[in-house]
């Protein structure tokens, strides 16, 4: 902040700037929630209606025994849908985002391992998994997408507050001792909070 020195109304103005900045972060939080949550929800919905294909997508990675592939193929979509819904409505944001981010890391590892082993598969992320023509593999794109979604999750773990989140209503934090900020909100601040 470049302004210095108290002017009439300066306090309120400064306050407004701080609000805006926080609001931007809240908005970014909302975007992260919708991106990670939306992708997880769609991915889960597309797979849950096609159990055979979902299992097959896991089998295609050639990483697990069939029984394990079957469990992952059938249960992962449920987890994805649940995380997607939680993130979209903003409930338990930090924890959902943490699990979502970990999932993205796992997916990245899986895709990278398929790439490294020279398999020609679709990531199966959205249910259309399985082998593809070697020239049609899109490992890098898939990894970059999942990395971006991981970043979205990581942001929410660090700063879970966001716009339009159920969390804000449900877990409204009582004004904590020592934090004067909430208090100053409902008295017209006449003293500038300084340029800190």
């Amino acid at each position: 902040m470049t302004r210095s020195g108290p002017e009439p109304g300066a306090g309120r103005h400064e306050h407004g700037v701080a609000m805006t900045r926080g609001r931007w972060a809240d908005l970014l939080g909302l975007v992260c929630r919708l991106a990670l949550g939306g992708v997880l929800l769609v991915a889960g919905l597309l797979k849950v209606g096609d159990p055979t294909g979902s299992i097959q997508s896991v089998v295609a990675y050639r990483l697990f025994d069939y029984r394990v592939s079957e469990m992952i193929g059938l249960m992962l979509p449920v987890v994805e849908i649940a995380l997607g819904l939680l993130l979209i409505v903003g409930l338990l944001t930090r924890w959902s985002a943490a699990v979502g981010a970990v999932l993205m890391l796992v997916f990245i590892a899986g895709i990278a391992s398929a790439w490294a082993r020279g398999l020609s598969i679709d990531c199966g992320c959205f249910g259309t998994g399985g082998p593809v023509d070697p020239s049609d593999t899109a490992y890098l794109t898939e990894i970059l997408r999942d990395a971006a979604l991981f970043a979205a999750g990581a942001w929410l773990v660090v700063r879970p507050r966001s716009l339009l989140a159920v969390d804000t209503v449900l877990f409204r934090r009582p004004p904590a001792a020592g934090s004067a900020a909430p208090e100053s909100r409902h008295t017209a601040p006449s003293v500038p909070k300084g340029a800190s």
């Binding site: 849950v48 159990p51 055979t52 079957e70 059938l74 249960m75 979509p77 449920v78 987890v79 649940a82």
Partner: peptide, 11 residues
């Protein structure tokens, strides 16, 4: 729910 889905949908 995941366990129920597994039990129901498992081929």
């Amino acid at each position: 729910v995941a366990v129920v889905v597994y039990v129901v949908l498992r081929p």
